[in-house]
Design a protein around this nucleic acid. Structure first.
Lengths: 193, 193
DNA sequence: CAAAATATATACAGACTGGTCTATATTAAT
DNA sequence: ATTAATATAGACCAGTCTGTATATATTTTG
């Protein structure tokens, strides 16, 4: 692929970071441009669909990053509850480091735009589906019955998303760690340990 | 109290409804004004702090509405799991009716503004705390150990918030109902049934 | 080397933003 | 009735928003 222009990537990176902190409506294209160093022409060259297309691309990119992180953690830990605990710990650390400003990289944008904006909604659905799949697979591999694995995986994702909101409001990692722990125990018992 | 000007209430109602659908940054004061029928002067008369103050008041008002709903449901159902199921069903119906446009009335605004905006963050923390309390009390009343009641109550809130995001993206009530059911079963077992 | 595609760079437009300001009603207190 | 407080009304401002248009580089292809 290689010789794609230098600015596509920087625009996307800036967009992901800004959308995460300020949300979709709260982030102006000018801000993305100045943080990325790209001129406006490049933006509409790479994303002719304008802000909507950047939003969808950012959700997709951020979703992919999380998927990769989860897969790496799944490799490193041999039980689904360990995976969940490890990811929660990582989120907690990240939240603290950003002083509770950078939560889920896609939740805010999705709440602002879904289900009206089709492309963004689709990108979000794909991301959630991938994340869920990682948990689901980890559980099946630990001999959780498939049906149960699916619903527990969705619960894990929902819990993480929700506790990230609480965490921001309370300026504390407690909600993340505590909720994850409760679900982790539930998962552990589901695989008949 | 009585003779407060007629427009304070209409402004607040419009703000709650618009923030819920479009988020904080996505809602302009002009929109709130036109939906409420009030002129700009009234807005700054009642909310001299401008948009931030309206945001905080809207979060507080919406939070109070949910609290009242939860308390009513807690009265009507005699177990915490029944309370959760009933509330989830109500949310699911509401989401469907709004075609997955109106989710949690405070989550979007909070993700956009917390923890930077102090007053809004505080209003959100108070709301979550009240909601949690309703679940916590219901569980304690059903002889769930206090410590466990607290963490399960927070899990319930986190799960609801998270599944409302998933629900919007998937344009389906499934995530709400499914996650709530899983947590309901967990609660049921926690009170030693 | 020339033509074409790709990419970069700004200037600009029209609408909308939150917020301030001043003027005018309306109600309450003296 | 007069003063004071409360409330309503909308014009206005400076700044920002997304998006378009046009011009110039840079690379790739024939």
């Amino acid at each position: 692929m290689a010789p794609t222009g230098k600015h596509r990537e920087t625009i996307l990176t800036a967009a992901v970071s800004l959308f995460r902190r300020r949300g979709y409506s709260g982030t102006g294209l000018a801000e993305i441009l100045s943080e990325s160093g790209a001129p406006k022409g490049s933006l509409y060259h790479y994303f002719p669909g304008g802000k909507t297309e950047i939003g969808a691309a950012a959700v997709s990119a951020a979703g992919g990053q999380v998927t990769r992180t989860l897969k790496a953690l799944a490799e490193a830990h041999d039980t689904p509850e360990a995976l969940l605990r490890a990811y929660a710990a990582q989120l907690a650390a990240w939240m603290e480091q950003s002083q509770w400003r950078s939560g889920c990289p896609i939740a805010t944008v999705l709440l602002e735009t879904a289900p009206q904006e089709d492309r963004i909604t689709k990108a979000g659905a794909d991301a959630f589906s991938e994340w869920t799949r990682v948990f689901e697979d980890a559980m099946i591999q630990s001999s959780v019955p498939p049906e149960r694995a699916r619903s527990l995986a969705r619960l894990a994702i929902a819990t993480i998303e929700g506790s990230l909101i609480l965490s921001r409001v309370e300026r504390s990692s407690d909600p993340i760690l505590s909720s994850a722990e409760t679900v982790a125990e539930l998962i552990a018992s589901a695989r008949g340990r």
